[in-house]
Write a protein that binds this DNA or RNA. Structure first.
Lengths: 334, 334
DNA sequence: CTGAAAGCGCTAACAA
DNA sequence: TTGTTAGCGCTTTCAG
C-alpha cells in the first residue's frame, strides 16, 4: 500500500499532526524533528494525498478547461498556454473536449462539480449557456475565454472580434475586391465578425448578398465544401474571408483542386494565425489572436477569483492584429 | 455551501447510508424511498463529491496523460482521441504537457501520484525513464503510447517505427534519390527510424554520410534551420526524410525561401500524417500513424490494467502507412 | 514545540 | 429494506 501520514509519523516517531505541519510549513517545528520527518518521508517515498487534503476543505489544485476541439490548432495553442501558466501556479488542468456537443458539455460540467475543481475556464464555442449558470450556482469560480456572454457577469478574456473582422474586411476591400464572401462559424464570436463584414461592405457602398454568407463548423472539410459552394455561384467571389484558419485552409485546398489560383484569382483571409497559416502555400493572410497573453490572463483572472482576493470582475478585450501574407492580392484587372 | 449527503438524507428523511445506496445503485432500496431520495437530490441540486468517495478507497475516475507538446498537431490529435475514449468510459483526463522538460516531467509524476489518479499514459518523448518506475512502484497502472521502453515490462501501444522509416526511405530511394538526408528527433522512436534509414541506404549500396544525419526537437523552426544546414552542404541532398510533419513543414518553408522547388529539386517526406500534410502546397508525402486506433487502444489497455482484470500486459505494434502526396518525385535528370 | 482528537463527505460492513 | 457506525488520509484547533 501507499504510505500514509501515519506511516511517516510512526517512522519518525512523532504524531501525524507534526508531520502535517512539516508538509505544509505551518506552525512551528523544531529543526531536528523537521529533519527526522523529512527523512522518513524520503525513506518511505511518501506522497501526501491531495484527495484527503481536499476533503478537509483545502483546494483541489485542479481547474477544468472546457474547449470545443483540441485538434483545432488554435485551441491546441491556447490549451498549451493555459496549461503552462497553470502549471507555473501549481494547478493542474482537466481537459474537457466538448466537440461542440451539448451532451458532453453537460456531462463535463457535472463531472467538474463533483470533482470539486477550484475553478473552470469556458472557452469559446460553448453552446449551453445555462450550464454555465449551474457552475456559478455552486460557487465555483469561472472565467470565460475568447467568448463573451453578454448576459453573464463573468470575468472574460477575449479579443475584439468585431475589430478583427473589420481589419480582415478592410484589407480585402482596400485591395479592390467587390465580391467578398464570408464563412462564419456557429459561435458567438462569428456573429461579431459577421457584423463587421456587413458594416465594412456597407461603408464602401457594396450591397450585402446572402449568397456570400455561409455558416458552418470549423474544419478543413467544411471549408472545402463552402468554397465549392461559392465557386459554383454565377458570380463567384474574388475574395473569401474565412472566420478561422481551418476553414481558410479548406478554401485554399478546394481552390487548388479547382485550379483557381491564389491570390491571383482568389484572395483568402483566415483568422487565428495558427500554425496552418505559415505552413500553407501561399502563406495565409490572417488575423492574429495573442494566444499567449490570452492564456496567461485568463488563468490569472481565474486564480484571482479562486483566491477571492482582489479585482472586481472584468472583461478584457485584447486587440487582434492583421497579418498580411501571400494569400491576398488585388483582383485581376484592378 | 454545497449540499452534502447529509443534507439530502435530512431532506428525504432517510439515513445517509440509504442515500449512498441510491446514488451508487448498491443494496436493495424500496422504490418509494428511492424516489424520495432522487427528488431530494434534485431539489438541493446535489452533486456527490468524488473527492470524498475517492478517499474511501474508490477510484478517482481520473487518468493522467503525459504528452510532450500539445501544440504539435500529432499530439493534439492523439490527445483528442484519448480524451474521447476516456470520456466514453467515464474517465477524465489531466493533461500534462511536459515540453520535453525533465523538471516538468518530474513535477507532474509527483502530482499525479498525489492526486491518486487511477492510471497514467506516457506518451512518446518522455525523457526520464526512471520516473516511470516511480509511478509503477506506487502500483499505479501505466500504459505507454507511441514509445516503447525496452527495459520496462509495461503495456504499450505504438507503431512500428522501423517499418515506418523504412517505408519512407524505400519510397525515396525507389524514386531514384541517391543523396537522402534525415532529420530525426531526440526521442526513442527516431532511433528506430534512423536505423531504418541506414539499413535502407545500405541495402541499395549507398554509403551513409554523417553530414546527412541531424537530430533535433520537433518544431517548424528547427526544421527550417536543419534544412538550411543541408542546403549549404557542398553536395546538398535531393531528398529529405523528416521524422515528423512539423520538421517537414519547416523544410518546405526553407526550400521556399531559398527558391528550391519541391518536388522538382527537392523531395520531402514527413511522418505522422497530421493536418499539416494536407494543408501545405505541395501536399506532403508522409507516413500515417493510426491515431484513432492508438488512442482507443491505449485507453482500453490502461482501463484493463486499472480494473485488474484480464489480459496480460502486451506490446501492440500497429502498422504505419505510406501516404504519397505531392512533395516527392524523382530527382532531376533521372 | 508537539500531540490528541474532532471532523471533511462518503462507503461498506453489520445490525436492526 | 433501512440505519448505525467505523474508517479513508489529512488539517486544524486546542491542550500539554
Amino acid at each position: 500500500m501507499k504510505p500514509t501520514i501515519y506511516d511517516v509519523a510512526k517512522e519518525a516517531n512523532v504524531s501525524i499532526a507534526t508531520v502535517s505541519k512539516v508538509i505544509n510549513g505551518t506552525g512551528r517545528i523544531g529543526e531536528k524533528t523537521r529533519r527526522k520527518v523529512l527523512l522518513a518521508m524520503k525513506e518511505l517515498n511518501y506522497h501526501p494525498s491531495l484527495v484527503a487534503s481536499a476533503l478537509t476543505g483545502k483546494k483541489t489544485g485542479t481547474i477544468g478547461l472546457l474547449i470545443p476541439d483540441i485538434s483545432n490548432p488554435f485551441y491546441a495553442e491556447l490549451a498549451k498556454k493555459i496549461e503552462d501558466r497553470s502549471h507555473e501556479l501549481g494547478l493542474s488542468v482537466v481537459m474537457c473536449n466538448t466537440d461542440y456537443d451539448e451532451e458532453k458539455e453537460e456531462k463535463y460540467i457535472s463531472l467538474l462539480i463533483r470533482k470539486n475543481v477550484d475553478g473552470v475556464i469556458f472557452s469559446s464555442g460553448f453552446k449551453t449557456v445555462s450550464l454555465i449558470q449551474d457552475i456559478v450556482d455552486q460557487n465555483i469560480p469561472v472565467a470565460l475565454l475568447a467568448q463573451e456572454i453578454p448576459r453573464l457577469a463573468l470575468g472574460t478574456v477575449a479579443i475584439d472580434d468585431y475589430l478583427g473582422g473589420y481589419e480582415a474586411m478592410n484589407h480585402l476591400l482596400s485591395l479592390g475586391h467587390k465580391n467578398v464572401a464570408i464563412i462564419a462559424e456557429n459561435v458567438h464570436s462569428s456573429d461579431l465578425r459577421l457584423n463587421a463584414y456587413r458594416d465594412a461592405l456597407k461603408e464602401v457602398g457594396i450591397d450585402v448578398h446572402d449568397q456570400y454568407i455561409v455558416r458552418t463548423n470549423a474544419s478543413i472539410s467544411n471549408g472545402k465544401s463552402c468554397a465549392d459552394h461559392f465557386f459554383n455561384l454565377s458570380v463567384p467571389p474574388t475574395a473569401i474571408f474565412a472566420c478561422n484558419d481551418l476553414l481558410a485552409a479548406g478554401v485554399m485546398q478546394m481552390a487548388g483542386e479547382r485550379g483557381i489560383k491564389v491570390p491571383e484569382e482568389l484572395s483568402i483571409s483566415g483568422f487565428d494565425n495558427t500554425i496552418l497559416s505559415t505552413s500553407s502555400a501561399p502563406t495565409l493572410t490572417t488575423i492574429a489572436q495573442p494566444t499567449e497573453e490570452m492564456g496567461n490572463r485568463v488563468v490569472d483572472m481565474l486564480v484571482e477569483e479562486i483566491q477571492g482576493k482582489g479585482a472586481s470582475k472584468q472583461r478584457i478585450k485584447l486587440l487582434p492584429e492583421l497579418i498580411i501574407r501571400g494569400s491576398t492580392a488585388s483582383p485581376k484587372g484592378n
